[in-house]
């Protein structure tokens, strides 16, 4: 076992005090490597909480720069950083919060040509992206690479998430098959979202990552958790691995292809 320094023992004391975590669990967290895809509404709270928890290596993927309209929910970025690459802004905040964390930044948009290489060093992947092309590609790549991951999506006042161990539990495509037709899609940019919803869902995804790293409790395996913040109803729908899933059933997916990314149109709600 590693020797914890005095400052580490103090910093992580509220974890170590938990019987289900303890010193062994904290060591697992310190040795874990988690990739967060998207440093936005979901990625911001995920990155903050996983950095605070002491995740050893945090990879952050995002090709965008901070925009003023992001700051209503993307709490890892600040007004002074408008125009700065999101991965840089996030890296600064993580370094200030917990300098023990190694941050790897990827200032790029994931596609079929680069995703497998980026996923490779990580133990757990978190989807914090804002479009179906990326969400389905992440699912495909995680199934192909056998990486456990957390799916997350938000819309207006609602959120959904599930935790996936490829070929053991239902995947995103088991339930949702493939991206909806381009014309039907309200994206976050066109549909709006209550900022705090991103925090609600992102912190659930961060907790799921820690549960998987620690091997504790019951992650959202074969369960789609959805909530509606207007009523604060939370619901879990039980999913079964789909025996006809085009991605994870049988021989399943063999190679990655990019999904068509619909142009964002402002659909009336």
């Amino acid at each position: 076992m590693r020797d914890f320094s005095e400052t580490e023992l103090e910093r992580y004391s509220r974890h170590i005090l938990l019987a289900d975590v303890g010193i062994e669990g904290q060591e697992k967290i310190l040795e874990s490597k988690v990739l967060i895809i998207g440093a936005g509404g979901l990625g911001a709270p995920i990155a903050y909480y996983l950095a605070a928890a002491g995740v050893g290596t945090l990879g952050i993927v995002d090709g965008d720069v901070v925009d003023l309209s992001n700051l209503q929910r993307q709490i890892i970025h600040t007004t002074a950083e408008v125009g700065v690459p999101k991965v840089e802004s996030a890296q600064r905040k993580i370094a200030a919060l917990n300098p023990d964390v190694t941050v790897e930044t990827y200032r790029t948009m994931l596609d079929a040509s680069n995703i497998l290489e980026i996923l490779e060093p990580y133990d757990f992947i978190i989807d914090g992206t804002d479009n179906f092309a990326a969400k389905f590609l992440i699912n495909d790549a995680c199934v192909l690479a056998g990486k456990p991951y957390s799916h997350g999506g938000i819309l207006r006042f609602t959120g959904q998430t599930m935790t996936i161990v490829p070929r053991k539990t239902a995947c995103y495509a088991c339930a949702f098959h493939r991206p909806p037709p381009a014309g039907a899609v309200p994206t976050c940019a066109s549909a709006g979202v209550l900022g705090a919803i991103a925090g609600m869902l992102g912190t659930i995804q961060a907790a799921e990552a820690l549960k998987v790293i620690l091997g504790l409790g019951e992650p959202l395996y074969n369960q789609l958790l959805t909530f509606d913040a207007k009523t604060m109803n939370f619901r879990k729908t039980t999913l079964k691995p789909n025996p006809h899933c085009r991605v994870c059933a049988g021989s399943g997916i063999q190679k990655l292809e990019d999904y068509e990314q619909p142009v964002c149109d402002l659909k009336p709600q």
Partner: peptide
């Protein structure tokens, strides 16, 4: 019967 809604946002 479950209607599971696609939720594509996250950024």
């Amino acid at each position: 019967v479950n209607f599971l809604y696609f939720m594509g946002g996250g950024q």
